[in-house]
């Protein structure tokens, strides 16, 4: 269970098993100030929560709604729309494999199959040790370096299957 330190400040809003970290709440309120309406900070709020927990736990939805003063459904609808908002736990490192056309033409399917074989998981799954999650992603805007992948904030390309073990060593 991801548990934030139970804080004595009134800023912590509890919702079932979830408590919004006070620092996250502050960050969300600060984001809110950047836009004319609170709904606009919704995506950023989800990202703030995700940064701490790795994903957006169900309990975070009402907590964000309450912090921003918007409807729960408005947060839920957004949280389920965007592909980089994870609603289930993911590994410590998310490997996004570009599956768009230029990478397809530079043999991304071979690379994807090599990742699947190496990690022993299918696309969309997480390794048993919680280290890696494999997901597809739209064109990463580095098609001249295809096939490309993004691990955390690091872009790699062109990646050849043989390189996978060495490449992953950097991600504990």
């Amino acid at each position: 269970m991801n548990q934030t330190t139970a804080s004595s400040t009134t800023a912590t809003i509890a919702s079932d098993a979830f408590a919004l970290d006070p620092a996250d709440r502050e960050a969300i309120l600060e984001e809110r100030a950047h836009y004319p309406y609170p709904q606009a900070a919704c995506i950023e709020a989800l990202k703030i929560v995700q940064k701490r927990h790795g994903h957006v736990p169900d309990g975070a939805i009402p907590a964000i709604a309450e912090t921003l003063g918007i409807g729960v459904a408005n947060v839920e609808g957004v949280a389920t729309f965007y592909s980089l908002i994870f609603r289930q736990p993911v590994g410590r490192h998310v490997i996004l494999i570009c599956d768009s056309s230029s990478c397809f033409l530079t043999d991304y399917e071979e690379l994807r199959n090599a990742f699947i074989a190496h990690l022993g998981i299918q696309m969309g799954q997480t390794t048993a040790d919680g280290r890696f999650t494999l997901l597809p992603v739209c064109c990463l805007g580095a098609c001249d370096r295809g096939p490309t992948i993004l691990i955390g904030e690091d872009l790699h390309g062109p990646v050849v299957p043989d390189e996978i073990p060495r490449l992953l060593e950097a991600y504990a």
Partner: peptide, 11 residues
Amino acid sequence: DEMEPGTFKDR
């Protein structure tokens, strides 16, 4: 938002 498959200029 550059996500058009095959496009790598704005980045």
